[in-house]
Design a protein around this nucleic acid. Structure first.
Lengths: 118, 118
DNA sequence: ACGACTGTACGAGGATCTTCGTACAGTCTC
DNA sequence: GAGACTGTACGAAGATCCTCGTACAGTCGT
């Protein structure tokens, strides 16, 4: 049961975009980007989702080249493959993260606006 | 039958990434980016695909905010909404187009390599 | 008005994605 | 070794996506 990690030359734009095009996965990637030095155990990033569902999302992200999963004891530490992604697709990850951050900001602003109305 | 075009504030990252995550649509966007001043009629961008299939792809791209469809006589001219996309998600479209161009290059290199072997 | 043309709308089939529950493999602690 | 823990593998159900054929609306020429 060795997990497949593609080499940077094997990264495909479509796969990366599809992987990041899912709200759950995009949220995970945002959290990982926040402190990308340390790896996070699989179970600590998202709550309220079944384990097997998460496994599915890890697979999609991993096979697109977005994340790396490294065994550490009985856990698998997840890290963003930021450097490799940047070297293959310069600026892509940054642009997506920036866009996602903007979306989160405007969502907060909306919530504030609604709250101030109520 | 007025086609819906979202305002830039309504653009959502997930939709844009999903729209660009499809090979057919990404190819279309690349062609549009090549000369984004002029609009292309719907039928002139891709061949070998059913009309109704194209209509589906135009809808996905349009509702994500990537393209605009303007009536012109009996045709609909398609343009990239590059400026609006850039103002909402800075650098995103450029990064995707760059990545797609790199992918196309490496595909050509692969083809050349295979051809030189054969 | 009529026919040719461009492209959307609708419905259907097949493939893929998302989610879940359950079962299992490895690892850590006692 | 027994039990708790982390996460994958597998199978299934439901939703969504992709593709197509056909039918229709609007426009241009004659």
């Amino acid at each position: 049961m060795t997990l497949f990690h593609p080499a940077p030359e094997q990264f495909q734009v479509e796969n990366v975009l599809t992987a990041l095009g899912n709200p759950t996965r995009l949220e995970v990637v945002r959290k990982l980007a926040h402190d990308c030095e340390y790896g996070h155990p699989c179970g600590t990033l998202i709550t309220g989702v079944a384990k097997s569902t998460l496994t599915h999302h890890w697979r999609v992200l991993r096979e697109a080249g977005v994340i790396r999963q490294e065994p550490a004891g009985r856990e698998l530490l997840i890290k963003l493959r930021r450097q490799e992604m940047d070297s293959r697709f310069p600026g892509l990850l940054d642009a997506v993260l920036l866009a996602a951050a903007q979306a989160a900001d405007s969502a907060e602003t909306d919530a504030d606006a609604e709250a101030s109305i109520a």
